[in-house]
Amino acid sequence: MTETTADMPQLRTEFDFELPSGYLDSDGALHRQGRMRLATGRDELSPLIDQRVRENPAYLGIVLLSLVITRLGTLPRIDASVIEGLLATDLAYLQNFYRAINDLNGETSTVACPACGTQFAIPTGSGLGES
């Protein structure tokens, strides 16, 4: 029997988050709400040729997060310098969020949208940059 589109779980590729503390920009504005997209194979591989990662492998997480975070408050651009400027609690939060949405341990949970009731699977997991 073939599944119809209505029978298949929806694939979400972007997930909203709220930082515990927030990023304070040079103008003094605090940015807490953001969005992260699922990582691609290219996202996982391209930091490996980044000179900053080659010189300091611990920098991998910074570069990787700068690639997959698509929005943070009203910032026009998210790059490694923004991720470097996060407080440790926010950086840890984003690393855990990355692991969870990218299903790095293979477990998923089914949740329902509180507004419309649509059910979809969200990944839960661990392993930032360890695919």
Score class of each variant (00 low, 15 high):
residue 41 G to T: 11
residue 42 R to G: 13
residue 42 R to T: 14
residue 42 R to M: 12
residue 43 D to P: 07
residue 44 E to Q: 09
residue 44 E to L: 12
residue 44 E to G: 03
residue 45 L to Y: 09
residue 46 S to Q: 11
residue 47 P to Y: 01
residue 48 L to V: 01
residue 49 I to K: 11
residue 50 D to V: 01
residue 50 D to G: 06
residue 50 D to I: 02
residue 51 Q to S: 14
residue 51 Q to P: 10
residue 52 R to I: 04
residue 52 R to K: 12
residue 53 V to E: 03
residue 54 R to M: 12
residue 54 R to W: 00
residue 54 R to P: 01
residue 54 R to S: 02
residue 55 E to D: 14
residue 55 E to G: 14
residue 56 N to L: 08
residue 56 N to Q: 14
residue 56 N to R: 11
residue 56 N to K: 14
residue 57 P to E: 03
residue 58 A to F: 12
residue 58 A to H: 13
residue 58 A to D: 12
residue 59 Y to S: 09
residue 59 Y to Q: 13
residue 59 Y to N: 10
residue 60 L to I: 07
residue 60 L to S: 00
residue 61 G to V: 00
residue 61 G to L: 03
residue 62 I to R: 09
residue 63 V to F: 01
residue 64 L to T: 00
residue 64 L to E: 01
residue 66 S to N: 06
residue 66 S to T: 08
residue 66 S to Q: 07
residue 66 S to A: 14
residue 66 S to H: 03
residue 66 S to P: 03
residue 66 S to G: 11
residue 66 S to Y: 00
residue 68 V to F: 02
residue 68 V to E: 03
residue 69 I to C: 02
residue 70 T to A: 15
residue 70 T to I: 12
residue 70 T to W: 10
residue 71 R to V: 14
residue 71 R to P: 09
residue 71 R to M: 14
residue 72 L to E: 02
residue 72 L to W: 03
residue 72 L to S: 07
residue 72 L to K: 01
residue 72 L to Q: 04
residue 73 G to Q: 04
residue 73 G to N: 07
residue 73 G to C: 07
residue 74 T to C: 12
residue 74 T to M: 15
residue 74 T to I: 10
residue 74 T to P: 07
residue 75 L to K: 08
residue 76 P to T: 11
